[in-house]
Measured scan of single mutants.
Amino acid sequence: GLPEGWEMRFTVDGIPYFVDHNRRTTTYIDPRTG
């Protein structure tokens, strides 16, 4: 799974992105792969 505090969501286009609730940021880069 994802690191603690992270969540995976999808855009309206079906593109996955990642929400970091710890820092309240979003990124398209998987936190597991950097």
Rank of each mutant, 00 (worst) to 15 (best):
Y28H: 15
E4K: 11
R32H: 06
T33N: 12
F18R: 00
G1H: 12
Y28A: 11
V12Y: 11
P31L: 01
D13F: 08
R24L: 10
I15L: 11
T33S: 11
H21K: 09
M8Y: 01
E4V: 11
E4I: 11
W6M: 03
I29E: 15
V19F: 14
E7G: 03
M8F: 04
Y17L: 09
R23W: 07
T27Q: 11
T26V: 15
T11M: 02
D30W: 00
F18P: 03
G14H: 07
N22W: 07
P16H: 06
G14P: 00
F10N: 03
T11H: 03
D20N: 12
Y28K: 10
T25S: 09
T26K: 15
M8E: 05
Y28E: 12
G5Y: 05
P16M: 12
T27S: 13
D20F: 06
T11R: 05
M8N: 00
F18E: 01
V19D: 04
R23L: 11
E7A: 04
T25V: 14
Y28N: 14
H21I: 13
E7W: 01
T26P: 07
W6V: 07
I15S: 06
G5M: 05
G5R: 04
L2G: 04
M8L: 10
P16Q: 09
T25F: 14
M8R: 08
D20A: 03
W6R: 01
P3Y: 04
N22R: 10
T27H: 11
L2F: 08
Y28G: 10
G1T: 13
G14S: 04
N22I: 15
F10A: 03
V12I: 14
H21N: 10
T11V: 00
V12A: 14
Y17E: 08
W6I: 06
P31R: 00
D30P: 04
D20I: 04
D20W: 03
I29R: 09
V19R: 02
G5W: 05
G34L: 15
R32L: 07
G34W: 12
T33Q: 13
R23I: 06
N22Y: 11
V19H: 05
V19Y: 15
F18K: 00
L2A: 03
W6T: 02
F10I: 10
N22H: 10
I29V: 11
G14Y: 03
V12D: 13
W6Y: 07
D13H: 12
V19S: 02
T33V: 12
G14N: 09
P31E: 03
G1F: 11
R32A: 07
T11K: 01
T33R: 06
P16S: 05
Y17A: 03
Y28Q: 13
N22M: 13
Y17F: 11
I15G: 02
D13Q: 11
T27A: 05
